[in-house]
Design a protein around this nucleic acid. Structure first.
Length: 812
RNA sequence: GCCCGGGUGGCGAAAUCGGCAGACGCAAAGGACUUAAAAUCCUUUGGUGGGCAACCACCGUGUGGGUUCGACCCCCACCCCGGGCACCA
């Protein structure tokens, strides 16, 4: 049969049409077949996919197809993270409704997904901006409210006085408003909703140990640091004069005799009272300034209040300052400054001439003289000048000093976390309405469960002014109080979109349930996720929130698993010309362009072949050409040999061995580290061998080789594999065939190649049967014609032999 | 500043357990086919030196040390690149 040219467009469009309405990738709930839940992070529907997205989904799709071929019941869903600020910005810029804009983007991107042959079960598609989805956000919120996991508190927000609106953090550019860069952002205090993630801080931290091995180490490290557990001591100093307590948290209570001042965060509640009238403006400036600046280039500044605090251990009076580097959100918002033993305090106190008093000496060394330190001594050591605690090692002093505080009631041992409660209020339109009303009589009242969803009104003008766009919609704002039936004002804040993505993967298991977020039995079947794939940029927020939601849902009795996913894979980016693809750099390669020019099979192959999936890859057109060349090479070979009469058969054994070695290599890559670049290299190498042996293969060997080759390529290049499968006269989609097994006997080389070294340098190779005993190996190595002359006149001191691999002679 | 990654040909990379450095692909050069070109197929391709040649010798995985019969791989110090965190008391 004559070969056919590889026309990728014709092939891909043919199968695209055939697959359009097929239900190929439907996952079955609750079967006895082994399940495999494979998930890629759902995208924000920004408008169009580029080849960076394609890489992410190709990694997942290739694995999904392999698992199908391995007989798994694969759940491979896709959805849309469809709420969010860009839709609102687009509305302001183009006068297009966020919903309309979002839905159009989704429709377009879905076609792009199909064009690439991604094997999603579209029956389970989830779009987070639909009431069918977000009503369950509201439901979870109510459950958390009932359990005290949702609460209101005052918090600072970014405010632009020109827009008259709240700014999201990403709308703050260099300390100014994104639309009015000359207008500095101010900090305003607003009542906001929070979720009590800190209640789970310890559990989230301890759970990390169990993810070890399944999640990348650096993600786990980032999460540990983010939670930031510190053990220390709360100590109440007393305000001189009134005696009222001022609490500080310290991990180094052993240094407390060296405290030479106390510093309050500018937002600390006492500051308003203690600071002199004429300094109020300075404090306000400190607060705004900190919000605007990179924390890196903030210079430590302070302001004395003129008041004093009493150290409960020494009775000493120390001055109280306000300092811009003290954080209100951590500990109690007040610190004791021990400049001799803390770098930050050292810097601050040096600047303002506050005494620096060493009270810890190195274990082997002298206590530094007062004022003699060049920098803080921050290590543990031995306490000195510390009253009854002098002479104690730091750790012991901490224990005894904490015990004393507890006994005398001025403090206690304490654990503090860096992680804060999750502020979920957004003064935005395009998000999930928070389901509560504000009643003048009853206060904050939750909407009844059977009243959900609180629908986001669609008739709205988005102008970018006012506290929140929803405030302009009277029929939304005017509500009845569920408790007393009187008039009430509906909450106009919407939820952070991280809520949407914190539990969407549960919804995939039961996407159309209108009675509950999902059926728990289905979750029990599918969960936990076997493999989650996404960008490392979500290592902290999305993945911690998801772990938090999972635990809340477990405690609500809805699910049994503690963690959402047993394995996580973070893939690298696709870059172009050495930099990240972005619209502003004008170097974006669109998914459409790649598919039209090269075909989606080729694009898929390139992103897998260019580097292992965890590394960044540079999109290079020349490299892509190489992949289309390879597919053409395979395609022509298969088509011209599909019905060939067959040759001598002289190469049969050799090629079949190579075939089984190739199957082994590809299978091992799938089952271990997903280095598809080496899998594909092995297949290419095999094809190179086929070209060399084409005339020497018997017809039966050829048939077997062609069939297995097509199956091997199936997960990587689904279109051309399907076409070739048909050319071979076979029916049924490739991904429903069994993955080829390799036979270790057939894959084995006849003879082992044993390397001969002299003093570690390669000098020759000998070929011997596998399992040749050591002595014989050495005898053969000595007899080798290349080795022999080099050993003449030398004395062999030792021979190191690795069976079937190597002999190394150590000579003098 | 701290914590992770990483540094291998002209380029992307491979070497999975301390045992043949550079598989596979790109680019480049040469050849075959063609009126010609494209496409395709074949060959060569880490560096230096030598040989008409098959080939031979030496050097070579960021730098400098170390461990080892043997190091891209392990240890110590340093340089460079990328990422994350960054006043968390």
């Amino acid at each position: 049969m004559p070969e056919k040219p590889y026309d990728h467009n014709q092939i891909e469009l043919k199968w695209l049409a055939r697959w359009q309405n097929a239900d190929f990738f439907k996952a079955e709930d609750l079967t006895s077949r082994p399940k495999y839940y494979l998930l890629e992070m759902l995208p924000y529907p920004s408008g169009t996919l580029h080849v960076g997205h394609i890489r992410n989904y190709t990694i997942g799709d290739t694995l999904a197809r392999y698992k199908w071929m391995r007989g798994f019941n694969v759940l491979h869903p896709m959805g849309w993270d469809a709420f969010g600020l860009p839709a609102e910005n687009a509305a302001i810029a183009n006068r297009r409704h966020p919903r309309e804009w979002t839905l159009a983007n989704i429709a377009y991107m879905k076609q792009q997904h199909r064009r690439y042959g991604f094997s999603y079960d579209w029956h389970r598609e989830v779009s987070t901006c639909e009431p069918e989805y977000y009503r369950w956000n509201q439901w979870f919120f109510l459950k958390m409210l009932e359990r005290g996991l949702a609460y209101r508190a005052k918090a600072l927000v970014n405010w632009c006085s020109k827009c008259g609106t709240v700014l999201a953090n990403e709308q703050v550019v260099n300390g100014g408003c994104w639309r009015h860069e000359d207008t500095p952002v101010e900090q305003r205090e607003l009542e906001q909703w929070f979720l009590r993630i800190t209640a789970y801080a310890d559990e989230l931290l301890n759970g990390i140990d169990k993810l070890e091995g399944g999640w990348p180490e650096r993600v786990l490290t980032m999460q540990r640091n983010w939670i930031g557990r510190s053990e220390g001591t709360d100590v109440d100093f007393r305000l001189a004069g009134t005696g009222e307590p001022i609490r500080v948290f310290t991990t180094r209570v052993d240094t407390i005799f060296g405290a030479t001042c106390m510093i309050l965060a500018p937002e600390h509640p006492l500051v308003a009272r203690l600071v002199r009238e004429e300094d109020r403006a300075k404090v306000k400036r400190m607060i705004d300034d900190r919000a605007r600046r990179d924390p890196g280039d903030l210079v430590k500044e302070g302001l004395p209040t003129g008041h004093y605090a009493l150290n409960p251990y020494s009775g000493e009076q120390i001055p109280i300052w306000v300092g811009n580097f003290v954080l209100m959100g951590y500990g109690s918002g007040a610190i004791m400054a021990v400049p001799a033993h803390d770098d930050r305090d050292f810097e601050f106190c040096s600047r303002y001439g506050i005494p620096i008093r060493p009270v810890i000496r190195p274990v082997e060394g002298e206590l530094a003289a007062e004022g003699a330190l060049e920098s803080a001594f921050v290590d543990d050591g031995v306490c000195e000048r510390s009253g009854e605690f002098s002479g104690l090692p730091s750790a012991e002093a901490r224990r005894r000093m904490t015990a004393k505080a507890e006994k005398e009631g001025f403090g206690k041992g304490s654990v503090t976390y860096r992680i804060r409660d999750w502020g979920i209020s957004r003064q935005r339109y395009w998000g999930t309405p928070i389901p509560v009303v504000h009643c003048p009589g009853c206060g904050v009242v939750p909407v009844a469960e059977n009243e959900l969803p609180v629908l986001l009104p669609l008739d709205i003008q988005i102008t970018g002014t006012a506290r929140s766009p929803l405030e302009h919609v009277p029929e939304f704002v005017h509500a009845r109080c569920p408790k007393c039936g009187g008039g009430a004002r509906r909450e106009t804040d919407t939820m952070d979109t991280f809520i949407d993505s914190s539990w969407y993967f549960y919804r995939y298991c039961d996407a159309h349930n209108d009675k509950a977020p999902f059926d728990s039995a289905k979750i029990a079947y599918w969960f936990p996720i076997d493999q989650y794939i996404g960008g490392v940029e979500h290592a902290i927020l999305h993945l911690i929130y998801s772990r938090f939601f999972t635990r809340v849902m477990r405690d609500l009795g809805l699910i049994a698993n503690d963690e959402p996913a047993t394995r996580l894979f973070t893939q690298g980016m696709v870059i172009k010309d050495g930099v990240k693809m972005s619209k502003s750099k004008n170097n974006v390669v669109s998914a459409d362009e790649a598919a039209e020019r090269y075909g989606s099979d080729t694009a898929r192959l390139f992103v897998l072949f260019a580097a292992p999936p965890e590394k960044d890859v540079d999109w290079q057109d020349a490299g892509v050409e190489g992949m289309i060349r390879f597919l053409g090479r395979v395609y022509r070979f298969v088509t011209r040999n599909a019905a060939a009469r067959g040759g001598s058969g002289a190469a049969d054994a050799r090629i079949l061995r190579k075939l089984h070695q190739t199957i082994r290599k590809v299978t091992e890559d799938f089952d271990s580290r997903w280095h598809f670049n080496t899998s594909l290299a092995a297949v290419m190498e095999f094809v190179n061998h086929l070209y060399a042996a084409e005339a020497e293969l018997s017809s039966s060997a050829m048939q077997e080789v062609l069939e297995k080759l097509v199956l091997l390529l199936g997960p990587f290049a689904p279109y051309v594999a399907e076409e070739m499968w048909e050319e071979l006269g076979r029916t049924g989609p490739v991904f429903k065939q069994s993955w080829p097994e390799f036979d270790p006997e057939l894959a084995r080389e006849e003879l082992a190649e044993v390397v001969v070294q002299i003093n570690g340098k390669l000098r020759g190779r000998i070929h011997l049967p596998f399992g040749t005993p050591k002595e014989e190996l050495e005898r053969a190595a000595l007899a080798d014609e290349k080795v022999q002359p080099l050993l003449a006149g030398k004395q062999v001191i030792r021979a190191i032999t690795v069976p079937d691999r190597l002999v190394n002679f150590v000579v003098k």
